[in-house]
Amino acid sequence: MTFPQNLPERAWEQIGTNLRELANSSAWWLGDWLKYGEATYGWRRYKEAIERTGLDYQTLRNYAWVARRFEHDRRRDGLSFAHHAEVTRLSPPEQDYWLRKAEQQKWSRNELRKAVRASLAAQSDATETLPDNDDEQVAVDRPAESAADGKDRQKSTTLTVELSAGRLEYHAKAAAAHGLSLDQWLTHLLETVDGRSVERRTA
């Protein structure tokens, strides 16, 4: 790229902005192109994709991975492709929360990464310190159980909770504010309610 000697500074700045937007868009374009190729022609198309683009396999896989995680209506024009890549491993409500916060705070990709990592670290610490609703705590107001009862109680159960979009966003924000994933936050709420019920019965 060559430039005229008398190029105004404002014009030079605008060219940089345009190049940035072009580079950001090209990552999404490549991701969507690969996503379409995977769905239509299968994984064998990666060989052709490498030849056509000159990019390595892992880079192309990363582009496709991010594109699959964010449909067009969830992509934020004010943030880069790299911002979206930072939160791909989170749940969709958590992704939306952090991207919205990054947009509002005008965070760079590195600032978003730092905030997310700090939250995950706090989440890990909080998970370790959450009170355990173990057998010794609840055995006080329960009758003795047979071995069969104990085995049944140890089986895990899947609980499905239906929430409106508004309530889902509300709980996702609350979970993120406490450094927890949405699943851990809802589990903690249920355990808290269960603990209070036990206290009321034994009072």
Score class of each variant (00 low, 15 high):
L186D: 05
S181C: 02
D141V: 12
L60F: 00
E111L: 08
T88H: 14
R153Y: 05
S26Q: 11
K101G: 02
Y41T: 12
D183G: 11
R52D: 15
E71V: 15
L189W: 00
E191C: 06
L55D: 15
Y46K: 05
E136A: 15
R68K: 15
T187P: 03
T157A: 10
P92T: 12
R76I: 10
G78I: 05
R52H: 11
E13R: 02
E38V: 12
L180F: 07
W65V: 01
R196E: 10
E9S: 05
S26Y: 08
D141F: 04
L99G: 05
Q137P: 08
E38K: 12
Q58M: 08
A148F: 06
L182W: 04
Y63W: 13
Q123I: 07
L19A: 11
K155P: 01
R167C: 01
E86D: 09
F3L: 15
G150S: 07
K151G: 01
S164F: 08
W12L: 13
E13L: 09
H72L: 15
D194N: 09
R61E: 06
G37S: 13
S25G: 05
S91C: 10
A175G: 04
K106D: 00
P4D: 15
E71C: 12
E191V: 07
T88S: 13
A49F: 10
V161E: 08
N62H: 15
L60A: 06
N62F: 03
R142G: 00
E9Q: 05
E13V: 02
N24M: 00
A82V: 12
D96Y: 04
D183S: 13
S80W: 13
G195N: 01
A64N: 03
H84V: 14
W98D: 03
G31A: 02
E162T: 14
L190H: 00
L112K: 03
D152I: 01
D32N: 13
L99K: 05
E145D: 07
G179N: 02
T157V: 13
A67W: 10
E136W: 14
L60W: 04
G37D: 13
A49I: 12
E191P: 00
W12I: 07
V138I: 04
W185D: 02
Q105N: 02
A115L: 04
W107C: 03
L180G: 00
R153F: 03
R142E: 09
R167T: 09
P131E: 10
G16L: 03
S181L: 04
